[in-house]
């Protein structure tokens, strides 16, 4: 049912695209690169923006948010040691209980729930960033 609906709309979009631009489905960007080539209907269809699609989190954004969170964590005394690959216990002087608190804060920041086992495996900023990037429902 759902698949036929998608196929139908895809076919319609492919048919409509070369003829004219419909006001609702407008191509995102029409760069000269696109125009120089012959425009195929499929390329046109991909250029239609789906507003419900997940934009995804950028690595820099995730890193920035985690760094901010750690900066505000009062157990981290030496903020100069805080880098993209600092280790929680070796570089920042946090013990395992502090790490639990940091992971809790990360869970809240990105509104996800990290299972016990995975939460226990997060020991560094890099780990945390990689984990968040692998979560499709992180915000």
């Amino acid at each position: 049912m759902f698949r036929t609906a998608i196929l139908r709309s895809a076919r319609q979009a492919a048919r409509a695209a070369p003829r004219c631009q419909t006001p609702i489905a407008r191509p995102v960007a029409r760069s000269p690169l696109f125009q120089s080539k012959q425009i195929t209907p499929t390329a046109y269809f991909q250029a239609v923006r789906c507003y419900s699609a997940h934009a995804g989190l950028g690595k820099d954004e995730v890193l920035g948010r985690i760094m901010d969170l750690l900066k505000n964590f009062d157990k981290v005394q030496d903020t100069s040691k805080l880098t993209a690959d600092s280790h929680f216990s070796n570089d920042l002087g946090l013990d395992s209980l502090d790490t639990v608190e940091v992971v809790m804060a990360i869970e809240e920041e990105f509104s996800i729930e990290i299972p016990d086992k995975e939460a226990d495996a997060i020991h560094s900023v890099k780990h945390a960033v990689d984990y968040i990037l692998a979560q499709p429902d992180a915000h």
């Binding site: 209980l97 639990v100 608190e101 809790m104 016990d116 086992k117 939460a119 226990d120």
Partner: peptide, 13 residues
């Protein structure tokens, strides 16, 4: 047991 301790620590927090 470690996970249990961590869990109760989180709950208390």
């Amino acid at each position: 047991l470690r996970y249990q301790v961590i869990r109760i620590y989180k709950e208390l927090l």
